[in-house]
């Protein structure tokens, strides 16, 4: 049923990550993205992987959900792994058969690539999607970009447009269903004929939908004026964002993780063993 659609992939909950400020989570996501792209040493990748694991455990999102989230990128994962392994031509030769030669460096860079992609997807989706509702995320973006308002960037307007778009997705979906039903009942055919014919049939959905969206926009703007809307200046908010002590801890921990990734890039796995040996 169209009424039950979820916006984004938000799973309501009460974990430490759910309760963190959206601005904190956006900044954390940026740190994680930066860390995944700067990581190169084996140790850095281990740190990265463990950090993402911590996020996943704290969020109390089920493993199945996370795996489902990885499904769309499965193809890319397999594809890149395959090429990394087959076309690396340095290091120790581990296996040779016909034209296939597998070197240890190929295996290592494939493993790094896998960790990189998995950490990137898991950390950003846990932080920005699974534990943060779209509307709260919009608030967070607005909060972070607020300084830009000083140089006349219409931050509030963009945030409002975003939240109105989110608000109207279910309404427009419902209308789309009605339009499809109405056009079908007049003999429109969306499921047979040549590709061109089917594409043309879709116009009979898009045009009424567009017209209705414009009508909504006109009525909505009138209603907003009636309710005293006059832009972001002097506006207060029911939902207040508050940076708490735990937010600072999260940010510091993520920053440390990023720093550790950069520092450890210089050292390999052997250095770690050397450290213990000394």
């Amino acid at each position: 049923m169209i009424r039950d659609i979820t916006l984004g992939q938000y799973f309501p909950g009460n974990s430490a990550l759910h309760n963190a400020d959206p601005r904190t989570k956006i900044l954390m996501a940026i740190l994680f993205i930066a860390a995944t792209f700067t990581a190169s040493g084996t140790l850095s990748f281990i740190i990265l992987f463990l950090s993402a694991l911590v996020l996943f455990i704290v969020s109390r999102i089920s493993l199945i959900t996370v795996l489902k989230g990885l499904k769309p990128i499965l193809f890319i994962l397999i594809f890149t792994t395959f090429f990394q392994i087959l076309f690396s031509r340095s290091g120790e030769l581990l296996f040779e058969w016909w034209i296939i030669k597998i070197y240890d460096s190929g295996l290592i860079s494939a493993a790094k690539m896998i960790v990189r992609i998995i950490v990137l997807v898991v950390s950003t989706s846990v932080l920005l999607s699974y534990t943060t509702s779209p509307i709260v995320l919009t608030d967070g973006i607005e909060g972070l970009l607020k300084p830009l308002a000083k140089i006349k960037v219409p931050v509030h307007d963009f945030a409002l447009i975003m939240s109105l778009a989110l608000r109207f997705i279910p309404t427009l979906l419902e209308e789309t269903e009605k339009i499809i039903a109405a056009q079908k009942s007049r003999g429109a055919n969306f499921s047979s004929g040549s590709l061109m014919k089917r594409a043309r049939a879709l116009i009979s959905i898009f045009i009424p939908l567009l017209a209705s969206a414009i009508r909504h926009a006109l009525d909505l703007s009138e209603a907003m004026i009636c309710r005293g809307y006059r832009g972001g200046d002097g506006r207060t908010k029911l939902r207040q964002m508050k940076i708490r002590f735990s937010d600072i801890v999260w940010l510091l921990a993520s920053a440390l993780m990023f720093a550790a990734v950069i520092i450890l890039n210089k050292y390999g796995l052997s250095d770690l063993f050397g450290l213990f040996g000394a």
């Binding site: 509307i135 939240s163 989110l166 608000r167 909505l220 907003m224």
Partner: peptide
Amino acid sequence: DDQIVATT
């Protein structure tokens, strides 16, 4: 529908 602006 055209008067409700927020998601909750």
